[in-house]
Structures are given as structure tokens and as C-alpha cells.
Design a protein around this nucleic acid. Structure first.
Length: 280
DNA sequence: GGTAGACCTGGACGC
DNA sequence: GCGTCCAGGTCTACC
């Protein structure tokens, strides 16, 4: 899960070089700033060390968040059943792949997704790092390590403050998102509700300034819905090389390439073994 | 419905 | 060291 995509490289996540430990600074609902260190437990499961110690209520809150971040409750049996018949996905079940790392809150994932658009990965890391370093609340024992800023702190920074942090033309999108969340106009956590339809959630996402087809599909993936492929320039390049002899392809061609995977389309794309595709 | 141009930044490149 | 060009996804105006 830690290596499922680049999210582990974005603050306040910190992944150990071994790939078997994930740390994160987190601000609890009660306002306490703690460090979480997640590791595989003996046998199955995950062990989480929290410093400084927290009370029972906060333990329950953090346990819930870790389950969401690591997607521990996902049932991937249907996806695995289909993947068994596809050589390019034969590795997923054996490697227990298919879960995608995400932030505890929809707000954090949305901000990070906005900061992946129209920029390089280095640019995304720089912008997220600036937000955390400038606006996040510090850990009491290590003030240089900070939590992801709350919507209120991002809203307080305002568009100009965010521009000064290097967010560029994305600053008004992030400022607007934070302000409306603080005002109670968005209820972003409600997008996790499994009773809501994927189409309704997608429409809600697309109505946000700065969220287009790519960002909406990316967010749907992070919300555990895989009906759309987050098509970016990398995806078009891979599909072009794999199935169109290197000729330029439009976004629709990428969607079409994975159409047969139905509700698992996004996951099939995400975990596709492109290297094997190149060798065949 | 499709398309051109603007948005902002960092990196690559040429001088 | 400076200037220019390009890549990246979304929005807006326009056809």
C-alpha cells in the first residue's frame, strides 16, 4: 500500500526506505498533534505506535483513520478473480496489491490532487511541502515536523498567501476549496459515504474549481471507486506505446483500453504491468 | 462538442 | 547568468 503510488512521498507522510514503515504527523480532533508510525504486525494486520500517548477516544479515532488510509476494509476478491485471467495483472493477487494509500481526510487528498495537475511530480512535492511547512501544526517533540494544515488554516492563508508559497494559478482553487469547507458548504467527508452513487460524487467533484476529468477520476480512485481512469499525459503515452504503435492517442482511447474491466477499470489501469507489455 | 489560448513554475537548453 | 521554450491539466471564450 505504501508503494501503491507517490502519496507516501508527500508530507506529512514519511516512508522508510525499506518501504515497510510509514510515519505521519497527525492532528487529532481534540487538537493534539501526534506522530503515527505504521508497521506490519506479526502475522497479519498493522501495528501503530503513537507519540505522545493518547486517550482511548483518540485511539479509536486514529484506528479508524489508519484503516481508511491503508484501505484495510477493501474487498478486492472480484477484482482478483478477473485479474487471474489477465497476464498483465497476474501479480496483483500474489502481491496482495490493489489498495491505494490515501490521506485521512478528503480535504487533504483533494488539495494534493489539485497540486498534481499541470505540474511535475517535483512541483507537487514542493507545493505540498510548502503548505505543510508553512501552515501545518508542529509536533511537540519535533517542531520541524508538521501535520497537514486544516481547512481553516488554509483558508486563513488566503489566495495571496498560497501564491506566495508557490502554488501559482492553483492558489485560488485551493483557497476557494478551504474557504467553502470551513463555511460548511461542501461537507467533503460526505464523499466517503458508500451509499452515494459514483456518478453523483463525480458531478460534485467536477463542480469544484480546478477539478477536471483527470482530478475527478483520481479522487474517485482515492475514494475506492474505480469506474474511471485518471488519464494524464503518462497514461496516454503508455497506451499509445502499448496498443497504438506510438501514435498520439486521445483520452477516450485510454478509457477504451480498460473498458472491459467495468467497475475495476481504474485499478486495472493502476496496477497494469506496462513493462511486461513492452516486452510482448 | 471540439479547440485555442491563458494560467504558473521549474527544468532543459542555447548563447 | 540570462533568456527562451516546453511540459503539465483545467478553465474560458469562441466556433
Amino acid at each position: 500500500v505504501i508503494q501503491s503510488h507517490g502519496w507516501a512521498q508527500l508530507l506529512p507522510f514519511r516512508a522508510a526506505p525499506t518501504g515497510r514503515e510509514l510515519a505521519r504527523i497527525e492532528r487529532t480532533r481534540a487538537g493534539q498533534v501526534v506522530r503515527l508510525v505504521m508497521r506490519p504486525a506479526a502475522g497479519t494486520g498493522v501495528r501503530v505506535r503513537v507519540t505522545p500517548p493518547v486517550d482511548a477516544n483518540t485511539q479509536a479515532e486514529l484506528r479508524h483513520q489508519v484503516r481508511w488510509m491503508l484501505d484495510l476494509d477493501a474487498d478486492l476478491s472480484e477484482f482478483y478473480a478477473q485479474a487471474r485471467r489477465e497476464p498483465q495483472l497476474a501479480h496483483v493477487e500474489a502481491g496482495a496489491q490493489g489498495r491505494i494509500l490515501r490521506a485521512p481526510t478528503v480535504f487533504e487528498d483533494l488539495v494534493k490532487t489539485l497540486l498534481t495537475t499541470n505540474t511535475s511530480w517535483a512541483g507537487t512535492r514542493r507545493m505540498v511541502g510548502a503548505l505543510v511547512d508553512r501552515l501545518g501544526e508542529p509536533h511537540p517533540d519535533a517542531p520541524s515536523q508538521r501535520a497537514f494544515p486544516t481547512p481553516a488554516r488554509v483558508a486563513a492563508a488566503g489566495e495571496e498567501g498560497l501564491r506566495a508559497m508557490g502554488l501559482g494559478y492553483r492558489a485560488p482553487f485551493v483557497a476557494d476549496l478551504a474557504r467553502r469547507e470551513v463555511e460548511g458548504a461542501l461537507h467533503l467527508e460526505g464523499l466517503k459515504d458508500p451509499r452515494r452513487s459514483t456518478e453523483e460524487i463525480r458531478r460534485t467533484l467536477l463542480a469544484l474549481r480546478g477539478v477536471g476529468d483527470y482530478a475527478a477520476a483520481e479522487m474517485l480512485m482515492l475514494l475506492g471507486r474505480y469506474d474511471y481512469v485518471p488519464v494524464d499525459s503518462w497514461a496516454r503515452k503508455r497506451v499509445s506505446e502499448a496498443w497504438h504503435a506510438g501514435a498520439p492517442v486521445k483520452n477516450a482511447a485510454v478509457e477504451a483500453a480498460f473498458e472491459r474491466w467495468g467497475p475495476w477499470k481504474g485499478l486495472a489501469y493502476w496496477f497494469w504491468n506496462w513493462r511486461a507489455e513492452e516486452e510482448t
